[in-house]
Amino acid sequence: MAFAAPNVILIILFTYRPLITNIYFSTLDWTLGAASATSVGLGNYVEFFSSPDAANVLGVTAIFTVTTVGGARALGLLVALALNQKLKGRTFARAVVFAPYVLSGVGVGLVWLFIFDPTYGALSWFLRSLGQISPQWVNDPKLALVMIIVVYIWKNLGYCAVVYLAGLQSIPPQLMEAASLDGATSFRRFRTIVVPLLSPTTFFLLITSLLSSLQAFDIIRIMTPSGNGTSTLIFDSYVQAFGSYNRAGYSAAISVVLFAGLLIMTAVQLRFVERKVHYS
């Protein structure tokens, strides 16, 4: 018991306690650092959902989450299919593709910010050589969102690829051989054998990438500090409390909305997707 106690106490104090404290904070009109706060009940939630910001923040969060979760998994599966063949150098390729996943989002964000620079970036050079003019990636809200989605997928697709590769390697080769003996084309084998047998992996990746996409912060903060067009729930929650507003209660309410969203999505997935996944 004494062995486990320090860790368990730390987890309760810094992981579970904040969930409750956040709910309490979210009922306060409270400036961060101020000694006193007034209770406003659900006022912060009413303000958030009735402000034009809410539609924007929720929309950006939804677009960012759906595109990054979908994009990283789709591209990851393609790379995994290539990695699954007996090719020379595939161990090396696997390591290279996975590498961005372990890198600092701040460092990665800076590297890509340079590439996207409209005047001196490598991308602008490429566009110029095609006779195009580089758009203002950071200052255009729509393009800024596209930019952080691309970079986020770049950073995370190797993780999806390696997890999918493990899933592919667990498919018994006899199954594929039997199917090709029966004359199934490779696309048909992929659709009728690989995709269903990969569904536990897909489910696992869906949950883990959803969790990490909703928490994406460092790339957004470093590439688009103003959050113009890229303000997700987590970013808005940060800006409200620690940007120039110091609105702790309002920020806590946004955190609670984010956490509630996570809970609901995880529950829905467990309830509906799990049934489809375990067919054996």
């Binding site: 104090l13 810094f14 904040p18 928490q215 806590a252």
Partner: peptide, 23 residues
């Protein structure tokens, strides 16, 4: 206690920053 630790894996740390900052 094991369950407590297991569920903590799913709790996003980003949500906890404000209460932890205050503490």
């Amino acid at each position: 206690i094991f369950l407590l630790i297991l569920v903590a894996l799913m709790v996003p740390p980003q949500v906890s920053v404000l209460p932890n900052y205050v503490l």
